[in-house]
């Protein structure tokens, strides 16, 4: 059995006078312990796809099956329960600005009604795991981007998820920080056996940690499989977004990043 099965997934958005097909008949199988990268340019449908995996977006048709359980069959309450097992981290971290680091990590457990002392103990353990023991009382606004993402990772792990979804988790970070966050993700994947699905527009990220990859283009799956077997359109994804104003500058930034990530993780 696959950990995540995506079957004939379609998602359309109703525009003012036209329908936009964001995802067209997507099929992906993800095994337990995979670090599965989904790569594509802006507007390819990556964000929509990853939000279908925890039903933050409801697919128009098709199925998402997590450990044999089809999400579309669940009612609201069952879906919320299922979401506790599927954590998510974001490009802009999305930490609660008015809560300090430890209360942010405790937050998912508070939602589940876990006892406060128990939750805090777990939170301190995870804070040490992400290397921020000394920041327990700090507020997100006092932390750097990389530190905030570490807190977000600790928060995501607090509910003992089996799956971690990463929505452009390193896109707002500089190359060194990206490399350290990626190696943290790799470590989590190994230690806890958590399946990771990440979406990115950076080829370097995929190459650094993914064992499998799917290439998304205009809402369609172009190719997918083991990273060694998929031909990756290197040039096309070499520089960042299609809507970038400064392709040259980005190309250089990306190249530096690639080298640094490879050095660090490799």
């Amino acid at each position: 059995m696959y950990e995540i099965e995506i079957r004939n997934l379609c998602k359309s958005f109703q525009g003012k006078d036209n329908q936009v097909d964001a995802l067209k008949n997507i099929n992906i199988d993800i095994e337990k312990g995979d670090i599965y990268g989904i790569i594509g340019m802006s507007g390819a449908g990556k964000s929509t796809l990853i939000r279908c995996l925890n039903y933050l977006e409801r697919p128009t048709s098709g199925q998402v099956i997590i450990e044999g359980k089809e999400l579309g069959q669940l009612n609201e309450k069952e879906l919320r329960r299922e979401r506790r097992e599927i954590s998510m981290i974001f490009q802009h971290f999305n930490l609660l600005q008015q809560k300090n680091v430890i209360d942010n990590i405790v937050f998912p457990l508070t939602l589940q009604g876990v006892k406060k002392s128990e939750a805090r103990e777990k939170a301190f353990e995870l804070l040490a795991k992400v290397g921020l023991e000394d920041k327990a009382k700090a507020y997100p606004a006092q932390l750097s981007g990389g530190q905030q993402q570490r807190v977000a990772i600790a928060r995501a792990l607090s509910s003992n998820p089996k799956i971690l979804l990463c929505d452009e988790a390193t896109s707002a970070l500089d190359p060194q920080t990206t490399a350290s966050i990626l190696s943290l993700l790799k470590q989590i994947n190994k230690e806890y056996g958590i399946t990771i699905v990440l979406i990115t527009h950076q080829m370097s990220v995929v190459k650094a940690i993914c064992n499998k990859v799917a290439v998304l283009e205009n809402g369609q799956l172009v190719s997918s499989g083991k990273i060694s077997e998929v031909s990756l359109p290197e040039d096309k994804y070499f520089w960042i977004d299609g809507d970038s104003q400064l392709p040259k500058h980005h190309a250089r930034a990306e190249r530096i990043e690639k080298v640094e990530v490879d050095n660090y993780v490799g």
């Binding site: 999305n94 937050f107 939602l111």
Partner: peptide, 27 residues
């Protein structure tokens, strides 16, 4: 309140009541 924070709470399985009292009113 940042839509991203609300989305994060949803992804943790928060109910709407929890989002109102633990996210919206606090943030």
């Amino acid at each position: 309140v940042d839509a991203g924070v609300i989305e994060a709470a949803k992804s943790m399985g928060a109910s709407n009541v929890q989002i109102v009292f633990k996210v919206l009113l606090v943030e």
